[in-house]
Amino acid sequence: MTASPEKIRYRAEPSGALLIRPLDAMTLIYHRASGITHMVTEPVPEILEAMAGDALDAAELATRLSETFDLGGADDAAAIIADRLAELAELGLVSAVRG
């Protein structure tokens, strides 16, 4: 049985694994393990920073982000963050670690 996407826990690549350069509205992320450069917008850099070294699911991450940012409706925020996390997992910038 597959868990609901919002319950999956993710861990970000350790900070030394990424080079992050904010340019303008976009931020560049160089991923050392893959050698791939990703161009992202908010809230991706914020998500990666907030995750630090911890394994978090979308709701936990939303709580953590809301300490620094105004996220509006919190339920909605968790769903949006879950989508971003799934995308980041596909790129290999975060990994699912549920278990």
Partner: peptide
């Protein structure tokens, strides 16, 4: 041209 667009085009 913003740096991000320049970056993308130059890659």
């Amino acid at each position: 041209m913003p740096p991000s667009e320049t970056f993308m085009r130059l890659t």
